[in-house]
C-alpha cells in the first residue's frame, strides 16, 4: 500500500511537470460588435524617433515580438533596476532576431535622440535589437495606456515623473500578452517564461 502511494505521488509529480504552459491571453478590453465579431485591443498607430534619429512606426514592429517599457534617462527612482532586468532579457533571448526591446522615454524634453543614443551606447546594446524612442510628450504618455502602464507628470516625484516599472510583452499582431513588475527579479523570471512561450508559438 505504501509503495502504491509513493508511485501515485511520483506519477502526479511527473505529469504535473510535463503539463504544457497555458496559452497567454490577450490583455485589455475585448469587445464584441453588434454582428457578433470579437475585437481584440491593439497598440494604437504611432510614429516616433529612435536613438539613431530614424522614424520608427508601429508598422516596423508588426511581425516582431516586443518587450516594451516606459522610462527616462535621468530617472533616479526605479528605472535603473528595470533596465538591469531588461539586460537579463536582452542576454537570454539574443538568439531570437524576431524579438525586440522597445523603451519609450516619458521625458522627451531631456531625452533627445542624441541623449538616447548615448544611453544605448553606454549600455552597449545593439540598436537592431533594442530601440529607444522619443517624440511628442502627449503622444508618448497617451500610448502608455495601450501598454497597460501608468505615466504621470508630477513635480513632487523623483525626477518629475511618476510611472509604473512594468515590462510589457506584445505579440506580432500588436496585442499585449503579458506584463510584469520590472523591479522584481522573480516576476521577471516568470515573465521570461511567457516570452519564451510566445517565441516558441510563432509570436502569436
Amino acid at each position: 500500500m505504501r509503495y502504491f502511494f509513493i508511485i501515485a505521488l511520483a506519477a502526479v509529480l511527473i505529469t504535473s511537470g510535463c503539463q504544457e504552459k497555458k496559452p497567454l491571453p490577450i490583455i485589455g478590453n475585448i469587445e464584441t460588435t453588434a454582428t457578433g465579431d470579437t475585437i481584440y485591443p491593439v497598440i494604437r498607430d504611432f510614429s516616433f524617433i529612435n536613438q539613431d534619429s530614424q522614424v520608427v512606426t508601429n508598422k516596423d514592429l508588426l511581425g516582431k515580438v516586443t518587450i516594451a517599457d516606459f522610462f527616462f534617462t535621468s530617472c533616479p527612482s526605479i528605472c535603473p533596476i528595470v533596465k538591469k532586468q531588461e539586460l537579463r532579457l536582452y542576454d537570454r533571448f539574443d538568439n531570437y532576431p524576431d524579438l525586440m526591446l522597445v523603451s519609450f522615454t516619458i521625458d522627451p524634453k531631456r531625452d533627445t535622440p542624441e541623449r538616447l543614443h548615448l544611453y544605448a551606447q553606454n549600455l552597449e546594446v545593439d540598436p537592431k535589437r533594442w530601440v529607444f524612442l522619443t517624440g511628442p510628450k502627449d503622444e508618448l504618455h497617451a500610448i502608455s495606456k495601450d501598454y497597460v502602464s501608468i505615466v504621470l507628470e508630477d513635480p513632487d516625484a523623483p525626477g518629475g515623473f511618476d510611472h509604473s516599472g512594468r515590462l510589457i510583452l506584445v505579440d506580432k499582431n500588436a496585442h499585449v500578452r503579458s506584463f510584469c513588475n520590472g523591479t522584481d527579479p522573480k516576476e521577471v523570471d516568470r515573465f521570461m517564461e511567457d516570452v519564451q512561450w510566445l517565441l516558441d508559438n510563432g509570436g502569436e
Binding site: 534617462t73 535603473p80 553606454n122 549600455l123
Partner: peptide, 10 residues
C-alpha cells in the same frame, strides 16, 4: 542594485 553592481555605463 542589491549586489552593488550598478548599471554598467549609466
Amino acid at each position: 542594485m542589491a549586489d552593488g553592481s550598478g548599471l554598467p555605463g549609466i
